[in-house]
Protein backbone atom coordinates (compact mmCIF):
# COMPACT_ATOMS: atom_id res chain seq x y z
CA UNK A 1 0.00 0.00 0.00
CA UNK A 2 2.97 2.31 -0.54
CA UNK A 3 0.96 4.06 -3.28
CA UNK A 4 -1.14 5.66 -0.51
CA UNK A 5 1.84 7.96 -0.02
CA UNK A 6 1.03 9.71 -3.27
CA UNK A 7 -1.97 11.29 -1.53
CA UNK A 8 -0.57 12.56 1.75
CA UNK A 9 2.54 13.63 3.64
CA UNK A 10 1.24 11.56 6.58
CA UNK A 11 3.23 8.44 7.45
CA UNK A 12 1.00 5.94 5.62
CA UNK A 13 1.96 2.68 3.89
CA UNK A 14 4.86 2.09 6.26
CA UNK A 15 4.83 -1.69 6.13
CA UNK A 16 5.28 -4.00 9.12
CA UNK A 17 7.90 -5.93 11.04
CA UNK A 18 5.67 -8.29 13.01
CA UNK A 19 3.18 -5.84 14.48
CA UNK A 20 5.71 -3.05 14.63
CA UNK A 21 7.31 -0.65 12.19
CA UNK A 22 10.18 -1.68 9.90
CA UNK A 23 13.51 -0.41 11.24
CA UNK A 24 13.94 2.16 8.45
CA UNK A 25 10.70 3.87 9.50
CA UNK A 26 11.65 3.76 13.18
CA UNK A 27 14.96 5.50 12.44
CA UNK A 28 13.35 7.99 10.04
CA UNK A 29 10.95 9.04 12.78
CA UNK A 30 13.82 9.12 15.26
CA UNK A 31 15.74 11.51 13.03
CA UNK A 32 12.79 13.88 12.66
CA UNK A 33 12.23 13.89 16.42
CA UNK A 34 15.96 14.39 17.09
CA UNK A 35 16.00 17.45 14.83
CA UNK A 36 12.95 18.88 16.57
CA UNK A 37 14.51 18.23 20.00
CA UNK A 38 17.81 19.80 18.97
CA UNK A 39 15.91 22.83 17.75
CA UNK A 40 14.11 23.21 21.11
CA UNK A 41 17.40 23.14 23.04
CA UNK A 42 19.61 24.91 20.49
CA UNK A 43 20.99 27.96 22.34
CA UNK A 44 20.55 31.39 20.80
CA UNK A 45 23.97 32.63 19.66
CA UNK A 46 23.54 36.19 20.91
CA UNK A 47 27.01 37.57 19.94
CA UNK A 48 26.73 36.01 16.47
CA UNK A 49 23.22 37.33 15.90
CA UNK A 50 24.20 40.76 17.23
CA UNK A 51 27.15 40.95 14.82
CA UNK A 52 24.92 40.01 11.89
CA UNK A 53 22.27 42.55 12.85
CA UNK A 54 24.79 45.37 13.32
CA UNK A 55 26.42 44.51 10.02
CA UNK A 56 22.96 44.89 8.48
CA UNK A 57 22.71 48.40 9.94
CA UNK A 58 20.70 47.80 13.14
CA UNK A 59 21.72 49.11 16.53
CA UNK A 60 20.96 46.41 19.09
CA UNK A 61 20.34 45.79 22.79
CA UNK A 62 20.86 42.30 24.24
CA UNK A 63 18.25 41.30 26.80
CA UNK A 64 17.14 38.23 28.71
CA UNK A 65 13.86 37.20 30.30
CA UNK A 66 13.41 36.40 34.00
CA UNK A 67 13.97 32.69 33.24
CA UNK A 68 17.45 31.63 34.32
CA UNK A 69 17.99 28.69 32.01
CA UNK A 70 16.34 26.69 29.24
CA UNK A 71 14.76 24.14 31.60
CA UNK A 72 13.18 26.88 33.71
CA UNK A 73 12.13 28.68 30.55
CA UNK A 74 10.21 25.60 29.33
CA UNK A 75 8.52 25.10 32.70
CA UNK A 76 7.68 28.72 33.47
CA UNK A 77 6.09 30.62 30.59
CA UNK A 78 5.30 33.42 33.06
CA UNK A 79 9.04 34.09 33.56
CA UNK A 80 9.64 34.07 29.80
CA UNK A 81 7.10 36.88 29.45
CA UNK A 82 8.99 39.22 31.83
CA UNK A 83 12.44 40.81 31.60
CA UNK A 84 15.21 40.23 34.14
CA UNK A 85 16.08 43.16 36.42
CA UNK A 86 19.40 43.59 34.58
CA UNK A 87 17.59 43.85 31.25
CA UNK A 88 15.12 46.40 32.61
CA UNK A 89 18.14 48.50 33.65
CA UNK A 90 19.57 48.28 30.11
CA UNK A 91 16.34 49.70 28.68
CA UNK A 92 15.89 52.42 31.32
CA UNK A 93 18.16 55.09 29.72
CA UNK A 94 16.64 54.64 26.23
CA UNK A 95 13.72 56.99 25.64
CA UNK A 96 11.33 57.07 22.72
CA UNK A 97 9.04 57.90 21.29
CA UNK A 98 9.54 55.39 18.51
CA UNK A 99 7.11 54.34 15.79
CA UNK A 100 8.11 50.71 16.20
CA UNK A 101 10.32 48.45 18.30
CA UNK A 102 11.49 45.09 16.94
CA UNK A 103 12.43 42.20 19.19
CA UNK A 104 13.96 38.88 18.15
CA UNK A 105 13.37 36.12 20.74
CA UNK A 106 14.49 32.49 20.69
CA UNK A 107 11.07 31.17 21.78
CA UNK A 108 10.92 27.41 21.22
CA UNK A 109 13.35 27.33 18.28
CA UNK A 110 16.49 29.50 18.20
CA UNK A 111 17.21 27.71 14.93
CA UNK A 112 14.21 29.45 13.35
CA UNK A 113 15.56 32.81 14.53
CA UNK A 114 19.01 32.15 13.09
CA UNK A 115 17.59 30.91 9.79
CA UNK A 116 14.86 33.45 9.11
CA UNK A 117 14.61 36.47 11.46
CA UNK A 118 17.20 38.73 9.87
CA UNK A 119 16.05 37.70 6.39
CA UNK A 120 12.56 39.04 7.21
CA UNK A 121 14.01 42.32 8.55
CA UNK A 122 16.16 42.71 5.42
CA UNK A 123 13.11 42.30 3.20
CA UNK A 124 11.22 44.80 5.33
CA UNK A 125 13.98 47.42 5.24
CA UNK A 126 12.83 49.41 2.18
CA UNK A 127 9.38 49.77 3.72
CA UNK A 128 10.88 50.92 7.01
CA UNK A 129 13.04 53.46 5.19
CA UNK A 130 9.96 55.02 3.64
CA UNK A 131 9.56 53.34 0.26
CA UNK A 132 5.79 52.85 0.88
CA UNK A 133 4.95 55.98 2.88
CA UNK A 134 6.44 57.83 5.85
CA UNK A 135 9.68 56.31 7.16
CA UNK A 136 9.60 54.52 10.51
CA UNK A 137 11.44 55.86 13.54
CA UNK A 138 12.87 52.63 14.97
CA UNK A 139 13.97 51.70 18.47
CA UNK A 140 17.17 49.68 18.86
CA UNK A 141 16.59 46.03 17.91
CA UNK A 142 16.14 43.90 21.05
CA UNK A 143 17.71 40.41 21.03
CA UNK A 144 16.01 38.41 23.79
CA UNK A 145 17.23 35.16 25.28
CA UNK A 146 14.58 32.82 26.85
CA UNK A 147 11.83 35.13 25.58
CA UNK A 148 8.13 34.50 24.93
CA UNK A 149 5.88 36.65 22.76
CA UNK A 150 4.59 38.77 25.65
CA UNK A 151 8.15 39.84 26.60
CA UNK A 152 7.72 42.26 23.71
CA UNK A 153 5.01 44.11 25.65
CA UNK A 154 7.41 45.11 28.40
CA UNK A 155 10.15 45.96 25.90
CA UNK A 156 7.91 48.09 23.70
CA UNK A 157 6.47 49.90 26.71
CA UNK A 158 9.88 50.59 28.30
CA UNK A 159 11.21 51.97 25.01
CA UNK A 160 8.17 54.17 24.45
CA UNK A 161 7.25 52.50 21.14
CA UNK A 162 3.79 52.78 19.55
CA UNK A 163 4.06 49.24 18.27
CA UNK A 164 6.17 46.18 18.95
CA UNK A 165 6.96 43.41 16.46
CA UNK A 166 8.31 40.16 17.93
CA UNK A 167 10.05 37.62 15.68
CA UNK A 168 10.16 34.31 17.56
CA UNK A 169 10.90 30.61 17.07
CA UNK A 170 7.71 28.49 16.98
CA UNK A 171 7.17 25.08 18.58
CA UNK A 172 9.06 22.63 16.35
CA UNK A 173 7.06 19.99 14.53
CA UNK A 174 8.52 16.73 13.22
CA UNK A 175 8.68 18.11 9.69
CA UNK A 176 9.62 21.74 10.49
CA UNK A 177 12.15 22.36 13.29
CA UNK A 178 12.84 25.97 12.22
CA UNK A 179 9.52 27.76 11.79
CA UNK A 180 9.42 31.47 12.68
CA UNK A 181 6.38 33.35 13.99
CA UNK A 182 5.88 37.13 13.89
CA UNK A 183 3.60 38.98 16.34
CA UNK A 184 2.53 42.60 16.06
CA UNK A 185 1.05 44.48 19.03
CA UNK A 186 -0.18 48.10 18.98
CA UNK A 187 0.58 50.14 22.12
CA UNK A 188 2.43 47.34 23.91
CA UNK A 189 2.13 47.13 27.68
CA UNK A 190 2.03 44.32 30.25
CA UNK A 191 -1.26 42.42 30.32
CA UNK A 192 -2.00 42.58 26.57
CA UNK A 193 -4.04 39.55 25.54
CA UNK A 194 -3.40 37.30 22.52
CA UNK A 195 -6.59 38.56 20.86
CA UNK A 196 -4.93 42.01 20.77
CA UNK A 197 -2.08 40.80 18.55
CA UNK A 198 -1.72 39.89 14.90
CA UNK A 199 0.29 36.82 14.01
CA UNK A 200 2.09 35.66 10.90
CA UNK A 201 3.15 32.05 11.35
CA UNK A 202 4.89 29.25 9.47
CA UNK A 203 7.80 31.31 8.12
CA UNK A 204 10.27 28.62 6.99
CA UNK A 205 11.78 26.96 3.95
CA UNK A 206 8.71 24.85 3.16
CA UNK A 207 6.21 27.48 4.33
CA UNK A 208 5.90 31.25 3.99
CA UNK A 209 9.03 32.85 2.49
CA UNK A 210 10.84 35.73 4.23
CA UNK A 211 9.82 38.01 1.35
CA UNK A 212 6.10 37.15 1.63
CA UNK A 213 6.25 37.39 5.41
CA UNK A 214 7.84 40.86 5.19
CA UNK A 215 5.18 41.98 2.70
CA UNK A 216 2.37 40.78 5.01
CA UNK A 217 4.06 42.39 7.98
CA UNK A 218 4.53 45.67 6.09
CA UNK A 219 0.82 45.82 5.29
CA UNK A 220 -0.17 44.97 8.86
CA UNK A 221 2.22 47.57 10.32
CA UNK A 222 0.98 50.27 7.95
CA UNK A 223 -2.66 49.47 8.73
CA UNK A 224 -1.97 49.27 12.44
CA UNK A 225 -0.25 52.68 12.45
CA UNK A 226 -3.07 54.25 10.42
CA UNK A 227 -5.92 52.80 12.49
CA UNK A 228 -4.07 52.71 15.83
CA UNK A 229 -5.15 49.12 16.60
CA UNK A 230 -3.94 45.54 16.39
CA UNK A 231 -5.59 42.16 16.97
CA UNK A 232 -8.92 40.78 15.83
CA UNK A 233 -10.05 44.17 14.45
CA UNK A 234 -7.10 44.17 12.03
CA UNK A 235 -7.42 41.44 9.41
CA UNK A 236 -4.38 40.09 7.61
CA UNK A 237 -4.49 40.69 3.86
CA UNK A 238 -4.56 37.73 1.45
CA UNK A 239 -1.28 37.05 -0.36
CA UNK A 240 -1.75 37.50 -4.08
Amino acid sequence: MKDLRRFTAARVGLGRAGNSLPIREVLDFGLAHARARDAVHFPLDVPGLRAECEAAGWSTVCLESAARDRAEYLRRPDLGRRLSEASKAILAPIHGPFDVAFAIADGLSALAVHHHALAVLRELRPMLDGSWNAAWNRAPLALVRFGRVAAGDEIGFALGASMVVVLIGERPGLSTPDSLGIYLTWEPRSGRRDAERNCISNVHGGGLSARDAARLLGVLMTESRARRISGIGLKAPALS
Binding site: T8, A10, R11, V12, L14, L21, F29, R171, L174, S175
Partner: peptide, 12 residues
Protein backbone atom coordinates in the same frame (compact mmCIF):
# COMPACT_ATOMS: atom_id res chain seq x y z
CA UNK B 1 -2.42 8.14 13.87
CA UNK B 2 -0.40 7.20 10.75
CA UNK B 3 3.14 6.53 11.99
CA UNK B 4 2.26 8.30 15.30
CA UNK B 5 2.95 11.66 13.58
CA UNK B 6 -0.04 14.02 13.37
CA UNK B 7 0.93 16.33 10.52
CA UNK B 8 -1.91 18.76 11.25
CA UNK B 9 -1.74 19.16 15.04
CA UNK B 10 2.09 18.83 15.11
CA UNK B 11 2.38 16.39 17.98
CA UNK B 12 3.09 12.69 18.38
Amino acid sequence: VPGADDIMLNYQ
